[in-house]
């Protein structure tokens, strides 16, 4: 399994991260920018989960564990932490967008900017 070139989840990770970086660079609507960051976060989370996957692995709980190979719990824990942090980041970005809209009346990145340079 590990030697196969055709790992479909990794192709999905590459597609998600590519789409997200294209959105972040090209879009001028700031809501779409936040959406791009969320897609990038999904791509990275999918990458970590795919790394931690093992065929026929059992959950790493030691009490009454059946015989077999356990998966490492670190990628799952890292992904869970990343999801929680991503919610905080998205909430903060959207709240700043609300304030930007109140100040300037626009969420286009060219029309709502006040700083020059």
């Amino acid at each position: 399994m590990t030697g196969s070139i055709f790992n479909i989840p990794f192709l999905a990770v590459a597609a998600l991260i590519g789409i997200a970086l294209y959105i972040i660079i090209s879009q001028r609507n700031l809501i779409k920018l936040v959406m791009g960051i969320t897609i990038l976060e999904s791509g990275v989370n999918l990458f970590l989960i795919t790394l931690g996957y093992r065929a026929a692995g059992i959950t790493p709980i030691y009490t009454h564990a059946p015989e077999g190979v356990m998966v490492l719990p670190v990628p799952q824990a890292l992904t869970l932490t990343s999801i929680v942090i991503g919610v905080a980041t998205t909430a903060l970005m959207l709240s700043m967008l609300v304030l930007t809209y109140r100040h300037t009346g626009d969420i286009d990145s060219e029309k709502s900017r006040r700083m020059k340079g």
Binding site: I24, L33, I37, M93, M96, L99, T100, R114
Partner: peptide
């Protein structure tokens, strides 16, 4: 408005960098 705009730029760059 400047403070909010600077904060937004900072959070976007740091979120992409952290990911």
């Amino acid at each position: 408005a400047d403070a909010v705009e600077g904060g937004f730029k900072y959070i976007v760059i740091s979120a992409v960098g952290a990911l």
